[in-house]
């Protein structure tokens, strides 16, 4: 994928600029490294040479995560674009006078400026770390105050719920669940055999022989399961009206 964006191979392609991409904090960092290492005047960058070296250096770019790879590739394409504009200057354009490298140079200098600033901060940080205060940790992690709803998982929810619950009042973690006393499979067979006998069955008559709540629940589940399989149809004219179980509609 790099060859598509790459410049023609450079005649002088020594190995020394083989670099470990992981070491660099982005394309500007790498570009500055190449420039500074060769004592190149930033205001007069030999674009063809640097482009070749940059492209060669990011050969291993596909080892990087996609987002980081994209950052390096974007810079490569920008370099190639500048190189082209130096070879074929736009004629009569309003920015005829401007060096095609100007914008890049500005960015490089600005980035270098902040790199120096980061060095100064790093030095200040090291000096500060030599002095200790009571119980003070200069960098400490705190819970993210921003809305984290989308990043919360079940664990977070559970932890939050436990915090709400006053200690000692948590429900016994060993919940006992009653086994379902009547297997649904049994009820399914009962529904089907009743249907076979009488053509159509009212729900109440299915439950009537037992009349207990567990039987009613199992019977209803059986009917719903059969309806889901399209083995029966269920009809009810209104709430609390008789619930009829019918054979599946004829094809």
């Amino acid at each position: 994928m790099i060859t598509a964006a790459s410049a023609p191979p450079e005649p002088d392609s020594p190995d020394w600029y083989q670099v470990d991409l992981e070491r660099f904090h982005g394309p500007l960092d790498l570009l500055l490294h190449l420039i500074r290492r060769q004592d190149i005047d930033v205001l007069d960058i030999p674009i063809a040479r640097i482009t070749g070296q940059f492209v060669a250096a990011i050969r291993e770019v596909h080892d990087l995560p996609l987002e980081r790879a994209g950052e390096f590739l974007e810079m490569a394409s920008q370099l190639v674009r500048i190189k082209l504009r130096m070879l074929f200057p736009a004629r009569g354009g309003e920015d005829e006078d401007e060096d095609p490298r100007a914008d890049l140079v500005r960015r490089l200098l600005e980035y270098e400026h902040f790199r120096e600033a980061a060095d100064l901060l790093g030095r200040a940080e090291r000096e500060r770390a030599l002095r200790f205060a009571r119980g003070y940790q200069p960098v400490r992690s705190v819970p993210t105050p921003e809305p984290a709803a989308l990043e919360s998982g079940w664990d977070d929810l559970w932890a939050a719920a436990r915090e709400l619950e006053p200690a000692g009042e948590l429900p016994d973690p060993q919940l006992t669940m009653a086994r379902r006393p009547i297997p649904i499979e049994e009820k399914i067979e009962w529904v089907l055999s009743s249907l076979e006998r009488s053509g159509r069955v009212e729900f109440g008559t299915l439950v009537a022989p037992w009349g207990t709540r567990p039987h009613a629940v199992s019977s209803l589940l059986a009917c719903l399961e059969l309806a889901r399989r399209r083995d029966v149809r269920m009809r009810q004219s209104g709430p609390f009206a008789p619930l009829w179980i019918l054979p599946p509609s004829p094809p």
């Binding site: 904090h25 902040f114 790199r115 600033a117 980061a118 100064l120 901060l121 790093g122 940080e125 090291r126 500060r128 770390a129 200790f132 119980g135 003070y136 940790q137 200069p138 960098v139 400490r140």
Partner: peptide, 20 residues
């Protein structure tokens, strides 16, 4: 004695930009 942490290079660069 509580130790002080130090920031990574990308964090320092980003922080420098925010600071200035």
């Amino acid at each position: 004695v509580p130790r002080s942490g130090t920031l990574s290079r990308p964090a320092l660069e980003t922080l420098a930009i925010v600071a200035y």
